[in-house]
Simulated scan of single mutants.
Amino acid sequence: MAIQVGDSIPSATFKVKTDSGLDDVSTEDLFSGKKVVLFALPGAYTPTCSAKHLPGFITNADAIKAKGVDTIACLSVNDAFVMGSWGKEQGADGSVLMLADGNGDFSKAIGLDFDASGFGMGTRSQRYAMIVEDGKVTTLNVEQPGAFEVSSAEAVMAAL
């Protein structure tokens, strides 16, 4: 069963590529006592993710943070090196935290994973955006397969 509004974020650890190597970021560190926008997408470097989803949050980062958001985080079932490189190429440094859910453990734990084996991509995250306040989901917008509407930066700003 997928996570719902009002549910707590489960305990998990993400990897983040930094200039000094790889860092672990726990859900407790990321969400406790903070207001966070977490958006997820099927894959780094994929067409919609690269042309619309991540760029929308980078462009609107200041406006989103002006609404009281502490962190904007992008999650994908990719490794931290891929997420780090993609974030650098997209200009995400300083505006969007690039989280690697390398084995898809978090995506599975919240019930928002899907089988993309037919595309040669294995298990991936569904496309969604959520607002999390002090570890509790207050808004959850999950896209229908192939769609890009309710998880956009603009939709998140309207929900804030």
Rank of each mutant, 00 (worst) to 15 (best):
I64C: 10
I110G: 03
S151R: 06
V142G: 00
E149N: 10
G104Y: 08
K108W: 14
G33C: 11
V132I: 10
F106H: 01
A109D: 08
D113A: 15
Q90E: 12
N60C: 04
N60P: 12
V77E: 09
G21N: 06
V142I: 11
F106A: 04
S152F: 15
S95H: 14
V36W: 10
D19Y: 06
F31N: 06
L140N: 01
S117N: 15
V137A: 13
V25K: 05
D79T: 13
F39E: 00
G21A: 02
F119D: 14
I9S: 03
A129Q: 07
I64V: 09
L99K: 09
E133Q: 14
A63P: 08
T13W: 11
D101C: 07
G68Q: 10
G91F: 13
G84A: 04
K108M: 12
T123H: 05
L112S: 00
D93N: 10
T27N: 06
S152D: 08
F114P: 06
A129K: 00
H53V: 07
F81W: 15
S11F: 11
E143P: 01
M98C: 06
S32P: 05
Y45M: 12
V150M: 01
Y128S: 00
D79I: 06
V37T: 00
N60Y: 14
A80M: 02
E89Y: 04
S125H: 02
L140H: 03
K17I: 03
S85T: 14
A51I: 13
K17M: 11
G94I: 03
D113L: 11
T123M: 14
V37Q: 04
G135Q: 01
G87S: 03
K35D: 14
L30D: 09
K35C: 15
G104Q: 03
L38N: 07
K15G: 01
Q126K: 14
G33A: 09
A92G: 11
T71A: 00
V150T: 13
W86V: 00
M98Q: 09
D115T: 15
N103Y: 13
S95N: 10
D115L: 13
F57A: 02
T71W: 09
F148I: 02
L30T: 00
K34M: 14
P55R: 04
M121G: 04
L41S: 13
Q126G: 05
